[in-house]
Design a protein around this nucleic acid. Structure first.
Lengths: 227, 227
DNA sequence: ACCTGAACACCGTTCAAGT
DNA sequence: ACCTGAACACCGTTCAAGT
């Protein structure tokens, strides 16, 4: 209720809340999510924020700074932490969070490969995993290996999902197996030899990707013991 | 020795061999590999090819066509096929080929997420994997799952390797554990709490990434049987 | 038929000028 | 101190003109 607050509220109402990195990244992510990476320009960003494009440079290190912000944002969104007791379940949540990046931000995902940021929230999540594994008796090196393998699998599974079709919203769950296969047929060149069609089905013709993801995790986690 | 051939050779000698998609993608990949994705422009590409930039449009569908070509190239380079007998070894080769993309073309790798091409050479490699698995008695669905899981792990492992440092040429093998840890320390913010440093070591502080990759594959392949 | 290059509508960023 | 906008050196692509 002090005057600072009042001023902030007032300026907020007039749409002039002070520009901040958070607000900038919010707007940038909205643009990329809806219109793709190519649509993200400093001019567009400025206009969406109701601000001169150059004003952005005061809060963020140019276009590269915005892209770094997007990468950080994705890593932090992926890093859900649940302090359950079972280390299996925790690893699963960790894995789902990472795969989730590619579903919520398919257009921004390439930035994970382009911007080298140290994702502190991800490290926090990794720490929780490690603690759970240590508690059960895994030694450090083995625990590291497990976390990294689960992380790699999750990243790669998400990557593979969006790298053939752009299956994002419409594609994942509400599609019948038959519809999926038809979609696949359309994507393949007309003269694709039959044995490659079989291979394509193996890679992409899966109507229930969530289940396949989980069973891939099973493959990893089964037979894991502290020994 | 016919006149067509002579003409081709002669024009080749004068550096005027006919522009082709292959030549264009070659040049584009060279630019991206050495100077990064941002350095790839139609003008630069034309100048490297000794050609008017607009001449490229006759062989390739604009800039997007070039990027598609790069993605196809990477998938096809990754798809090494070795007709060994042991299905374990074949899956390992398949996996190494996929991870290799990120080592040979770290700058171009983001395109794997941006350009949706149907990678026929990859399908060919997948087909070989499937045959090997079928031959040993795995049923179709299980074989699909195995191939996809191995593919996901390999993609994700490569992605994770280049998503923190840009460790590409210099970084992988010829670095001592100590040097690696120092590099890691430099990348982390100075005030990083100790428990996150431990987590960072788990994710990135591995002096022998090849060995870790192989042991991750072990984790996947161990305990796999047709039953 | 293929290649050329001027022209158009963009882009990120610098910098001097405003308030 | 912060925001502005003109200016600069780029970019992808269209299109009319060359050969």
């Amino acid at each position: 209720m002090n005057s600072d607050n009042a001023a902030r509220i007032k300026s907020g109402r007039t749409g002039r809340e002070p520009l901040s990195k958070t607000r900038i990244v919010d707007a940038a992510m909205a643009i990329v999510d809806t219109d793709g990476l190519d649509a993200l320009s400093m001019r567009r960003l400025g206009s969406d924020l109701g601000v001169d494009p150059m004003a952005i440079y005061r809060h963020v290190n140019g276009r590269d700074g915005v892209l770094d912000g997007l990468a950080e944002r994705m890593w932090s969104e992926a890093s859900v932490i649940a302090d359950g007791t079972d280390w299996h379940d925790q690893l699963r949540l960790f894995a789902r969070g990472i795969r989730g990046i590619f579903h919520t931000h398919p257009n921004a995902a390439p930035l994970l490969l382009q911007r080298f940021v140290v994702p502190l929230p991800l490290l926090e999540a990794v720490h929780v995993q490690l603690c759970a594994l240590y508690a059960v008796g895994f030694e450090a090196r083995r625990a590291h290996q497990i976390v990294r393998t689960v992380q790699s699998f999750s990243l790669g599974y998400g990557l593979a999902e969006i790298s053939c079709f752009g299956i994002t919203d419409a594609g994942t769950s509400d599609l019948s197996t038959e519809a999926m296969l038809v979609l696949l047929g359309q994507a393949l060149p007309p003269d694709t030899p039959p044995h490659l069609v079989d291979a394509a089905i193996a890679l992409y013709g899966e109507a229930d990707p969530d289940a396949l993801f989980e069973s891939g995790l099973d493959l990893l986690l089964n037979g894991l013991s502290p020994s």
